[in-house]
Amino acid sequence: MAEARSGVAAEGAEEAPMDRLLRGLLALNAVSAYAFLYLPIAVLILFSFSASRYASVWGGFSFRWYIHLFRDSAVRDALANSLFIAGLASVLATVMGTLLALGLERRRGHRHAARWDAAVTLPILIPDIVQGISLLLFFVLSFSALERLLGWRPTLGRTTVILAHTAFAISYVAVVVRARLAGMSRTLEEAAMDLGATEWQVLHRVTLPLVWPGVLGGGLLAFTLSLDEFVITFFTTGPGATTLPIQVWSMVRRGVTPEINALSSLILILSIVLVTLSLAVQRKR
Protein backbone atom coordinates (compact mmCIF):
# COMPACT_ATOMS: atom_id res chain seq x y z
CA MET A 1 0.00 0.00 0.00
CA ALA A 2 2.80 2.34 0.95
CA GLU A 3 4.56 1.82 -2.39
CA ALA A 4 1.39 2.49 -4.30
CA ARG A 5 0.87 5.74 -2.45
CA SER A 6 4.43 7.00 -2.46
CA GLY A 7 4.16 8.20 -6.06
CA VAL A 8 1.44 10.70 -5.30
CA ALA A 9 1.89 11.30 -1.58
CA ALA A 10 3.39 14.63 -0.70
CA GLU A 11 6.07 14.96 2.01
CA GLY A 12 4.73 14.25 5.49
CA ALA A 13 1.46 12.83 4.07
CA GLU A 14 1.96 9.61 6.01
CA GLU A 15 -1.29 7.69 6.67
CA ALA A 16 -2.81 8.33 10.09
CA PRO A 17 -2.33 5.35 12.49
CA MET A 18 -6.08 4.97 13.04
CA ASP A 19 -6.68 4.81 9.30
CA ARG A 20 -4.06 2.12 8.95
CA LEU A 21 -5.68 0.11 11.73
CA LEU A 22 -9.11 0.52 10.16
CA ARG A 23 -7.76 -0.63 6.83
CA GLY A 24 -6.30 -3.73 8.45
CA LEU A 25 -9.53 -4.57 10.24
CA LEU A 26 -11.57 -4.18 7.07
CA ALA A 27 -9.22 -6.50 5.20
CA LEU A 28 -9.50 -9.05 7.98
CA ASN A 29 -13.29 -8.80 7.88
CA ALA A 30 -13.35 -9.39 4.14
CA VAL A 31 -11.15 -12.46 4.42
CA SER A 32 -13.17 -13.99 7.24
CA ALA A 33 -16.49 -13.24 5.53
CA TYR A 34 -15.44 -15.12 2.42
CA ALA A 35 -14.04 -17.92 4.58
CA PHE A 36 -17.38 -18.14 6.38
CA LEU A 37 -19.19 -18.36 3.09
CA TYR A 38 -17.04 -20.86 1.29
CA LEU A 39 -14.89 -22.81 3.74
CA PRO A 40 -17.67 -25.20 4.86
CA ILE A 41 -18.59 -25.89 1.25
CA ALA A 42 -14.95 -26.47 0.33
CA VAL A 43 -14.64 -28.91 3.22
CA LEU A 44 -17.79 -30.72 2.11
CA ILE A 45 -16.50 -31.16 -1.41
CA LEU A 46 -13.07 -32.21 -0.16
CA PHE A 47 -14.49 -34.85 2.17
CA SER A 48 -16.75 -36.19 -0.56
CA PHE A 49 -13.53 -37.53 -2.07
CA SER A 50 -12.40 -39.14 1.16
CA ALA A 51 -11.95 -42.91 1.18
CA SER A 52 -12.86 -43.15 4.86
CA ARG A 53 -16.14 -44.68 6.00
CA TYR A 54 -16.69 -41.75 8.29
CA ALA A 55 -17.95 -38.46 6.99
CA SER A 56 -15.55 -36.35 9.05
CA VAL A 57 -12.39 -38.42 8.83
CA TRP A 58 -9.95 -38.02 5.92
CA GLY A 59 -8.99 -41.41 4.57
CA GLY A 60 -7.13 -40.55 1.38
CA PHE A 61 -8.43 -39.53 -2.03
CA SER A 62 -11.05 -41.75 -3.66
CA PHE A 63 -14.08 -41.70 -5.98
CA ARG A 64 -15.48 -44.53 -3.89
CA TRP A 65 -18.54 -42.67 -2.57
CA TYR A 66 -19.51 -41.26 -5.94
CA ILE A 67 -19.52 -44.75 -7.38
CA HIS A 68 -21.46 -45.95 -4.36
CA LEU A 69 -23.93 -43.14 -4.94
CA PHE A 70 -24.66 -44.10 -8.53
CA ARG A 71 -25.28 -47.69 -7.49
CA ASP A 72 -27.80 -46.57 -4.87
CA SER A 73 -31.23 -47.10 -6.43
CA ALA A 74 -32.97 -44.88 -3.85
CA VAL A 75 -30.73 -41.98 -4.87
CA ARG A 76 -31.32 -42.68 -8.56
CA ASP A 77 -35.08 -42.67 -8.02
CA ALA A 78 -34.86 -39.46 -6.04
CA LEU A 79 -32.84 -37.82 -8.82
CA ALA A 80 -35.39 -38.91 -11.41
CA ASN A 81 -38.21 -37.56 -9.23
CA SER A 82 -36.42 -34.29 -8.69
CA LEU A 83 -35.74 -33.76 -12.38
CA PHE A 84 -39.30 -34.68 -13.33
CA ILE A 85 -40.82 -32.39 -10.70
CA ALA A 86 -38.43 -29.52 -11.43
CA GLY A 87 -39.02 -29.88 -15.16
CA LEU A 88 -42.79 -29.80 -14.99
CA ALA A 89 -43.01 -27.21 -12.20
CA SER A 90 -40.59 -24.86 -13.95
CA VAL A 91 -42.47 -25.09 -17.27
CA LEU A 92 -45.81 -24.41 -15.55
CA ALA A 93 -44.37 -21.57 -13.47
CA THR A 94 -42.63 -20.05 -16.49
CA VAL A 95 -45.80 -19.95 -18.58
CA MET A 96 -47.93 -18.56 -15.77
CA GLY A 97 -45.27 -16.20 -14.43
CA THR A 98 -44.46 -14.80 -17.87
CA LEU A 99 -48.10 -14.15 -18.76
CA LEU A 100 -48.62 -12.59 -15.34
CA ALA A 101 -45.59 -10.32 -15.85
CA LEU A 102 -46.89 -9.24 -19.28
CA GLY A 103 -50.29 -8.48 -17.78
CA LEU A 104 -48.84 -6.52 -14.88
CA GLU A 105 -46.63 -4.53 -17.23
CA ARG A 106 -49.67 -3.67 -19.34
CA ARG A 107 -51.53 -2.43 -16.28
CA ARG A 108 -48.65 -0.29 -15.06
CA GLY A 109 -49.87 3.15 -14.08
CA HIS A 110 -53.44 1.99 -13.58
CA ARG A 111 -55.18 2.18 -10.23
CA HIS A 112 -53.94 -0.39 -7.70
CA ALA A 113 -51.26 -1.57 -10.13
CA ALA A 114 -48.60 -1.27 -7.43
CA ARG A 115 -50.62 -3.48 -5.09
CA TRP A 116 -51.07 -6.25 -7.63
CA ASP A 117 -47.36 -5.98 -8.27
CA ALA A 118 -46.53 -6.34 -4.60
CA ALA A 119 -48.94 -9.25 -4.29
CA VAL A 120 -46.89 -11.17 -6.87
CA THR A 121 -43.58 -10.48 -5.14
CA LEU A 122 -44.78 -11.06 -1.59
CA PRO A 123 -44.71 -14.92 -1.63
CA ILE A 124 -40.92 -14.69 -2.06
CA LEU A 125 -40.78 -13.23 1.45
CA ILE A 126 -43.27 -15.66 3.03
CA PRO A 127 -41.33 -18.20 5.15
CA ASP A 128 -41.11 -21.61 3.48
CA ILE A 129 -42.52 -23.31 6.53
CA VAL A 130 -45.64 -21.15 6.40
CA GLN A 131 -46.01 -21.79 2.68
CA GLY A 132 -45.49 -25.51 3.22
CA ILE A 133 -48.08 -25.78 5.96
CA SER A 134 -50.60 -23.64 4.11
CA LEU A 135 -50.19 -25.71 0.95
CA LEU A 136 -50.58 -28.94 2.93
CA LEU A 137 -53.76 -27.65 4.54
CA PHE A 138 -55.03 -26.50 1.15
CA PHE A 139 -54.34 -29.89 -0.45
CA VAL A 140 -55.95 -31.82 2.39
CA LEU A 141 -59.08 -29.68 2.26
CA SER A 142 -59.22 -29.97 -1.54
CA PHE A 143 -58.86 -33.73 -1.31
CA SER A 144 -61.77 -33.91 1.14
CA ALA A 145 -63.88 -31.78 -1.16
CA LEU A 146 -62.98 -33.97 -4.16
CA GLU A 147 -63.81 -37.08 -2.17
CA ARG A 148 -67.22 -35.73 -1.31
CA LEU A 149 -67.88 -34.66 -4.92
CA LEU A 150 -66.39 -37.57 -6.86
CA GLY A 151 -65.98 -40.27 -4.29
CA TRP A 152 -62.26 -40.35 -5.12
CA ARG A 153 -59.57 -39.13 -2.75
CA PRO A 154 -56.20 -38.23 -4.28
CA THR A 155 -53.10 -38.61 -2.14
CA LEU A 156 -50.03 -36.47 -1.62
CA GLY A 157 -47.35 -37.30 -4.14
CA ARG A 158 -45.54 -36.01 -7.19
CA THR A 159 -48.56 -34.02 -8.40
CA THR A 160 -48.92 -32.09 -5.16
CA VAL A 161 -45.18 -31.39 -5.06
CA ILE A 162 -45.30 -30.13 -8.66
CA LEU A 163 -48.25 -27.86 -7.84
CA ALA A 164 -46.53 -26.58 -4.68
CA HIS A 165 -43.28 -25.87 -6.53
CA THR A 166 -45.17 -24.16 -9.34
CA ALA A 167 -46.93 -21.98 -6.76
CA PHE A 168 -43.75 -20.61 -5.24
CA ALA A 169 -41.79 -20.42 -8.51
CA ILE A 170 -44.40 -18.24 -10.28
CA SER A 171 -43.31 -15.25 -8.21
CA TYR A 172 -39.66 -15.68 -9.12
CA VAL A 173 -40.38 -16.04 -12.82
CA ALA A 174 -42.69 -13.03 -12.78
CA VAL A 175 -40.05 -10.89 -11.06
CA VAL A 176 -37.31 -11.89 -13.51
CA VAL A 177 -39.52 -11.35 -16.58
CA ARG A 178 -40.76 -8.02 -15.24
CA ALA A 179 -37.18 -6.85 -14.81
CA ARG A 180 -36.62 -7.64 -18.46
CA LEU A 181 -39.85 -5.93 -19.49
CA ALA A 182 -38.97 -2.83 -17.53
CA GLY A 183 -35.99 -2.38 -19.82
CA MET A 184 -38.24 -2.63 -22.85
CA SER A 185 -40.27 0.37 -23.84
CA ARG A 186 -43.99 -0.02 -24.46
CA THR A 187 -43.35 2.20 -27.46
CA LEU A 188 -41.86 -0.81 -29.27
CA GLU A 189 -45.17 -2.64 -29.05
CA GLU A 190 -46.99 0.48 -30.17
CA ALA A 191 -44.60 0.84 -33.09
CA ALA A 192 -45.29 -2.75 -34.13
CA MET A 193 -49.03 -2.23 -33.91
CA ASP A 194 -48.70 1.02 -35.81
CA LEU A 195 -47.00 -0.94 -38.61
CA GLY A 196 -49.97 -3.27 -38.84
CA ALA A 197 -49.24 -6.01 -36.30
CA THR A 198 -52.20 -7.38 -34.37
CA GLU A 199 -51.84 -7.98 -30.62
CA TRP A 200 -50.96 -11.60 -31.29
CA GLN A 201 -48.35 -10.70 -33.91
CA VAL A 202 -46.87 -8.12 -31.57
CA LEU A 203 -46.51 -10.81 -28.91
CA HIS A 204 -44.66 -13.31 -31.03
CA ARG A 205 -42.75 -10.95 -33.32
CA VAL A 206 -41.66 -8.28 -30.84
CA THR A 207 -42.51 -8.85 -27.18
CA LEU A 208 -41.51 -12.49 -26.78
CA PRO A 209 -38.26 -12.26 -28.77
CA LEU A 210 -37.29 -9.31 -26.57
CA VAL A 211 -38.24 -10.81 -23.20
CA TRP A 212 -37.10 -14.30 -24.16
CA PRO A 213 -33.85 -14.11 -22.15
CA GLY A 214 -35.90 -13.15 -19.09
CA VAL A 215 -38.33 -16.02 -19.69
CA LEU A 216 -35.51 -18.53 -20.09
CA GLY A 217 -33.62 -17.10 -17.11
CA GLY A 218 -36.75 -17.21 -14.98
CA GLY A 219 -37.43 -20.77 -16.06
CA LEU A 220 -33.91 -21.93 -15.17
CA LEU A 221 -34.21 -20.18 -11.82
CA ALA A 222 -37.51 -21.94 -11.19
CA PHE A 223 -35.90 -25.26 -12.12
CA THR A 224 -33.00 -24.68 -9.72
CA LEU A 225 -35.25 -23.57 -6.88
CA SER A 226 -37.46 -26.63 -7.34
CA LEU A 227 -34.42 -28.90 -7.36
CA ASP A 228 -33.12 -27.43 -4.09
CA GLU A 229 -36.44 -27.01 -2.34
CA PHE A 230 -36.80 -28.91 0.92
CA VAL A 231 -39.29 -27.42 3.39
CA ILE A 232 -42.29 -27.05 1.08
CA THR A 233 -41.55 -30.42 -0.49
CA PHE A 234 -41.40 -32.03 2.94
CA PHE A 235 -44.96 -30.94 3.70
CA THR A 236 -46.51 -31.74 0.34
CA THR A 237 -44.78 -34.93 -0.70
CA GLY A 238 -46.04 -38.46 -0.29
CA PRO A 239 -44.94 -42.04 -0.87
CA GLY A 240 -42.97 -42.54 -4.05
CA ALA A 241 -42.28 -38.85 -4.48
CA THR A 242 -38.96 -38.51 -2.68
CA THR A 243 -36.82 -35.73 -4.13
CA LEU A 244 -33.07 -35.40 -3.76
CA PRO A 245 -33.12 -33.01 -0.78
CA ILE A 246 -35.66 -35.25 0.98
CA GLN A 247 -33.43 -38.24 0.21
CA VAL A 248 -30.42 -36.48 1.73
CA TRP A 249 -32.46 -35.69 4.80
CA SER A 250 -33.61 -39.26 5.28
CA MET A 251 -30.07 -40.54 4.78
CA VAL A 252 -28.76 -38.07 7.36
CA ARG A 253 -31.27 -39.45 9.85
CA ARG A 254 -29.44 -42.74 9.61
CA GLY A 255 -26.13 -41.00 10.18
CA VAL A 256 -23.92 -38.72 8.09
CA THR A 257 -21.87 -40.76 5.66
CA PRO A 258 -19.36 -39.68 2.99
CA GLU A 259 -22.03 -40.67 0.47
CA ILE A 260 -24.09 -37.69 1.65
CA ASN A 261 -21.07 -35.46 1.13
CA ALA A 262 -20.85 -36.69 -2.44
CA LEU A 263 -24.57 -36.26 -3.10
CA SER A 264 -24.58 -32.74 -1.60
CA SER A 265 -21.58 -31.81 -3.71
CA LEU A 266 -23.39 -32.93 -6.86
CA ILE A 267 -26.51 -30.95 -5.96
CA LEU A 268 -24.31 -27.94 -5.33
CA ILE A 269 -22.49 -28.19 -8.65
CA LEU A 270 -25.77 -28.64 -10.51
CA SER A 271 -27.29 -25.57 -8.80
CA ILE A 272 -24.27 -23.41 -9.52
CA VAL A 273 -24.31 -24.41 -13.18
CA LEU A 274 -28.05 -23.72 -13.48
CA VAL A 275 -27.95 -20.37 -11.69
CA THR A 276 -24.95 -19.24 -13.73
CA LEU A 277 -26.78 -20.25 -16.88
CA SER A 278 -29.89 -18.39 -15.72
CA LEU A 279 -27.95 -15.19 -15.05
CA ALA A 280 -26.06 -15.50 -18.32
CA VAL A 281 -29.20 -15.76 -20.46
CA GLN A 282 -30.87 -12.92 -18.55
CA ARG A 283 -27.98 -10.66 -19.40
CA LYS A 284 -28.33 -11.34 -23.10
CA ARG A 285 -29.35 -8.19 -24.96
Binding site: T187, A191, M193
Partner: peptide, 19 residues
Protein backbone atom coordinates in the same frame (compact mmCIF):
# COMPACT_ATOMS: atom_id res chain seq x y z
CA UNK B 1 -57.01 -0.37 -33.34
CA UNK B 2 -53.69 1.02 -34.61
CA UNK B 3 -53.13 -1.90 -37.00
CA UNK B 4 -56.31 -1.05 -38.90
CA UNK B 5 -55.28 2.57 -39.53
CA UNK B 6 -53.53 3.78 -42.63
CA UNK B 7 -51.17 6.07 -40.74
CA UNK B 8 -47.64 5.51 -39.49
CA UNK B 9 -45.76 7.16 -36.72
CA UNK B 10 -42.14 8.17 -36.31
CA UNK B 11 -41.47 8.11 -32.59
CA UNK B 12 -39.31 10.54 -30.70
CA UNK B 13 -37.34 7.59 -29.33
CA UNK B 14 -37.36 6.00 -32.83
CA UNK B 15 -38.66 2.74 -31.30
CA UNK B 16 -36.61 0.58 -33.65
CA UNK B 17 -36.88 -3.11 -32.82
CA UNK B 18 -33.54 -3.86 -31.14
CA UNK B 19 -33.57 -7.55 -32.06
Amino acid sequence: PPYRRDVNMVFQSYALFPH
